[in-house]
Nucleic acid binder design. Structure first.
Lengths: 167, 167
DNA sequence: TATTGTTATACTCTATAACTATA
DNA sequence: TATAGTTATAGAGTATAACAATA
C-alpha cells in the first residue's frame, strides 16, 4: 500500500515523453462517470496514505462514525444508511468486533436483531481517526478552495439525491 | 442488473418507517470520499440501466472512445491514459477484440508493441453507444442544471488534477 | 538493462441465492 | 409469511510479482 519495490519501480521520473496530455480522451472529459472515477481515485489515494498506519478502510471508518452518532442502531439500519448490502456488512462488522472497536449486543424486544455500539477503545481510536480525516479533507478543501469544496459537496449530493438502492 | 426477483424482492415500498433520514451520518456528510461514493453509485446505476442491453461496461466504453480519437496508440498508452494498469488492461482489450470491436496490430518499428484500433464494427457500435451516453449524461445535467453540471465537472477535474498514479 | 505485453495470483467490493431463528 | 442476520459464492476492479520476447 506504500513503497513499491517490484520491477516497475523505475518509473519514478515524470513519464516517458509524448505521454502526458498526449492522449485525446474525447467526449470522456465531459462525462460525470469518468470525472467521478478519477476524483475518487485521487481521494482514495490520499485516504490510503493518510490512514495507512491505522489499518482502516473507508467503509470501516464510515461504520465507526455512524455508530458514534447513532449508538444502538440495528445492523441493517447501519448498512442501509451507508449503502452497503446487509450481506456484505457482516464481515465488515465482524472485523471491527474482532479488533475490539465495535460490538454487537442482543436487543431485549427482538431476539433476532443485533444492536451496534462503539466500544470504549473504538471511541478512542475514532478520535484519532477523525483528526486524520479532518486533515485529509482539508487538503482537498485547500486544493480547490473552501467555498468550492462546499459547492462540490452540494453538487455531489444533488447527483446522488434520489439515488439510494444498495439493498 | 435490473429487476430483482429473489427473496428480497418485497421491499418495493418506500421503506419501513423510522428509516429514511433517521440515521445521522455525522461528519461523513462533509466528506468528499463519501459524497463521491454515493454520486458514483448513482451514476453507475444509471449507466447500467442505460447501457444494459448493450453489454458494455464503463471501462470498455472508455477504451473504445479513446481508440476512436487516438487510432494506433500502444496498449500501455491507452491503459495509462485511462488509469488502468497495463496488466489489468490485457483481459479488457482481449474481450473487445474477441467481440470484434477492437483489434491489435503489430507495429513495424517495434515487434514487442501492439497498436490498437477500432474495427469497422466497433465504430458502428460506438456510434450507438455514444448516443446512449449523451442521454445518460443529459439526465444528470438536467438533474442539477446545465451550468451546475459544467461546474461540477470542473471541480472534479481540480480534485483529480495532480493525481495520476495507476501504473 | 529496460520495456512491452503477458500470466498467475490475491484481495477488496459488490451482487444473488438460500439458510436459521426468530417474529 | 415476513424479517434480521448469516453463509456461500461469483463477478468485477485493482494490486504485485515474475516471465518471454524484444529493444
Amino acid at each position: 500500500m506504500m513503497m513499491q519495490h517490484d520491477e516497475d519501480d523505475a518509473p519514478a521520473d515524470p513519464l516517458p515523453d509524448p505521454w502526458v496530455g498526449a492522449v485525446d480522451l474525447g467526449p470522456l472529459v465531459m462525462t460525470l462517470g469518468f470525472a467521478l472515477r478519477r476524483a475518487q481515485a485521487a481521494v482514495a489515494q490520499d485516504f490510503a496514505k493518510s490512514f495507512g498506519p491505522e489499518e482502516i478502510r473507508p467503509s470501516q471508518f464510515a461504520v465507526l462514525t455512524v455508530l458514534r452518532h447513532n449508538p444502538g442502531l440495528r445492523q441493517t439500519q447501519v448498512s442501509f444508511a451507508l449503502g452497503i448490502k446487509r450481506t456484505n456488512f457482516v464481515p465488515l462488522i465482524d472485523e471491527l468486533e474482532r479488533r475490539g472497536l465495535a460490538e454487537r449486543r442482543r436487543v431485549p424486544g427482538d431476539r433476532r436483531a443485533a444492536a451496534l455500539f462503539l466500544t470504549r477503545e473504538g471511541a478512542g481510536v475514532l478520535d484519532r481517526l477523525e483528526a486524520i480525516a479532518r486533515e485529509h479533507e482539508a487538503r482537498f478543501a485547500a486544493r480547490v478552495g473552501v467555498e468550492q469544496h462546499a459547492a462540490l459537496l452540494g453538487l455531489l449530493s444533488r447527483i446522488s439525491d434520489r439515488g439510494f438502492d444498495a439493498e
